[in-house]
Amino acid sequence: MNVVSRFLRFVQGDSQADRVVPPTGYSARLTVFTAGAMAFLAVFAMALSLAADRLADRWSDALARTSTIRISAPLAELEAQTWAVLTVLEQTSGVDSARALTDDEQRALLEPWFGPDLPVADLPIPRLVEVVETAEGYDAEGLRQRLAAEAPGAVLDDHTRWRRPLVEAANGLRLLGWVAIGLILASTAAMITLAAGSALAANQGVIKVLRLVGARDNYIARAFVRRFTLRALSGAMAGTIAGMIAVALLPRAGDEQAFLTGLGFSGLHWLWPLTVPVLAAVTAFWATRIAAFRTLGGLR
């Protein structure tokens, strides 16, 4: 049978069947509220995870295993030292490729500061060598020492390396976000198990009568399961919408690197939070079903 039609039938339900269990306003409101609050938190945890994900991506792209060597030397020696550096690099294990930036490239780099007409060749500005390392990377300290010996004007600037711990932190943060979502789901399940358990306990008399007139466990369980699933679904939908609005309203600064201002969803990631109500409903369905069958199994 088609899953969608089954789901629709489950949602529509049998209004008669629903009425056999008396409405329990209090536990109903608690369930809706908790599901809503949990969904709200889950949306934030999701935003956190996805933001950390983007950040880690961006930073590890930027890492891209490049570094630069800056050679500052009198113009007369510059060419020789550049050669020396390139030779050292050629013999260094862990270096994939290296090349000196051309005058044009250097000019482009400096243009924002000095304008387009800078006579690079005539100025004592340092020469830049771009180093691309292999996946294993090179030994920065060893390279530094050999450069000092071969080309005293050369300074290894592995400026992007400081970001490595940040990428690790971002990865950790992403993991933390998913763990939080897992915990939120687990506590939703625990809360709904408790609420369903108390609803079942409060309705023992009803269950007894239903059994006396020939109701099967499945029928009795369904009355409770449907109820709690729909409550969790509606609460979680409200919480998710509220959470998405809250995330959308967070101030966004232009600086993409700043972490807090990057907390949000971008593009298709906006679809992710929509899974929260579904997850909440599925969780409620199983939590109530298991609680119901356990209770019914215990009652003779």
Binding site: V20, V209, R211, G214
Partner: peptide
Amino acid sequence: RQRIGVVHQDCQFLDHLPVAENIALPLTV
């Protein structure tokens, strides 16, 4: 039990449902 109709000494109804629905309960379930 769906084949056995029982009149219980203490009656055993669902107090939140009207009499007509209580009478129809075996059909409902």
